[in-house]
């Protein structure tokens, strides 16, 4: 299978429940096969064998009937820049892209389903949908899991549930997360306080690219911490409720800004648009901050004629690997900043 890097992922659509604040919803299931060591102790022969076995499993008629066609890609066959693009689209983790050894990713055409093979666990099955669609993402992940379970023997213990390489995932193996755009909470200096409260209800907060990353462009990722002792539905429900509450808080802060600082707010959005539409040099950090400002403008209907889909697309296409892929060459950081500004002008002009 060749990789269609130009296509947009399902999650980038920008429409659905709470789409004015929630960018995307993700459900991830960790699964391992019985009788094999976990990836950190596997030898090359075992890695190859696992990829072959999983590659066979996705060809089963039951899998096709239940979730459609899935295709396997060996990461070895991809150029580093292509792997990095998969990271920038949130389809694989940086660990999978950079890790040594035999690794693979399985994708559905719309990129709503991606399965990492030989990451921390044998399989990391992910479903990624736009806006707040955690329940839909869970139902899809559940269906993929059921279909694969017909073909593969998953390591499961009656007491501890699905067995995973790290005990922080044991049980359901489920990590659900939502990506939220919270600029008004940041502007009104409430973000720290609100997000700190989340840890008390078992919800972790991270930046845009997952564990250990900072919140760039006012985008935060919230996810469940506990995977054992609760059912999948309970975990999904809990995170949905938390996400809706966060969105409500953000909306309140936005209305406050509109009431008290209307001109400053509209000025900020307008200026951001002006810079993005005209700049000749744009660093990644500056671009993400300005994109957050115009996203806020779009979400609050201050800025018309642009939709969230375009902003999501921009957010992905200005990442380093995407720029280098589009240019067809490796670039220095300065060259990238020039190309980034050109790309933004091009996409904003439609």
């Amino acid at each position: 299978m060749s990789l269609n890097l130009d296509r947009n992922s399902k999650w980038m659509e920008g429409s659905g429940p709470q789409a004015d604040i929630v960018i995307s919803s993700r459900v991830r299931l960790a699964r391992n096969l019985q009788g094999l060591p976990f990836p950190n102790l596997m030898n090359q022969a075992q890695e190859v064998q696992l990829i072959r076995q999983v590659g066979q499993a996705i060809l089963a008629p039951g899998v096709f009937q239940s979730v459609g066609e899935l295709k396997l890609l060996n990461l070895r066959e991809l150029a580093p820049v292509e792997r990095q693009i998969l990271v920038e689209k949130h389809l694989i983790s940086p660990d999978l892209a950079e890790g040594k050894g035999e690794k693979a990713v399985i994708l559905r055409d719309d990129e709503a389903i991606s399965i990492m093979v030989n990451e921390e666990d044998h399989l990391r099955l992910q479903c990624l949908l736009p806006a707040l669609m955690l329940h839909e993402a869970w139902r899809l992940a559940d269906a993929v899991d059921d279909a694969l379970e017909n073909e593969l023997d998953f390591a499961f213990d009656q007491e501890k549930g699905y067995l995973t390489a790290c005990p922080t995932n044991v049980g359901t193996g489920l990590r659900a997360s939502t990506m939220l755009h919270l600029p008004a909470l940041v502007l009104t200096k409430q973000a720290g306080q609100v997000l700190a409260a989340l840890t008390k209800v078992g919800v972790a907060v991270r930046g845009l690219y997952g564990e250990g990353t900072e919140a760039q462009g006012n985008i935060f990722q919230v996810s469940n911490q506990i995977t054992l002792g609760r059912s999948e539905e309970e975990i999904i429900n809990n995170l949905s409720v938390v996400t809706v509450r966060l969105a409500d808080q953000e909306r309140e802060a936005r209305e406050l800004l509109r009431k008290q600082n209307r001109w400053q707010l509209e000025d900020r959005v307008g200026r951001a648009y002006g810079i993005l539409a005209n700049a000749r040099i744009l660093s990644s950090q500056e671009a993400l901050q300005l994109l957050s400002d115009i996203r806020l403008g779009v979400e609050m209907k201050i800025l018309r004629g642009i939709d969230q889909r375009l902003i999501n697309q921009l957010m992905v296409r200005i990442q380093p690997a995407y720029l280098q892929f589009a240019a067809g060459k490796e670039m220095t950081p300065f060259e990238r900043d020039v190309h980034r500004a050109a790309k933004v002008r091009e996409l904003l002009a439609g």
Binding site: K160, Y162, G171, I226, T227, L228, R230
Partner: peptide, 9 residues
């Protein structure tokens, strides 16, 4: 995890 008994799928 605050628990030791799987209650999920």
């Amino acid at each position: 995890q605050g628990s030791s008994q799987h209650r999920g799928k």
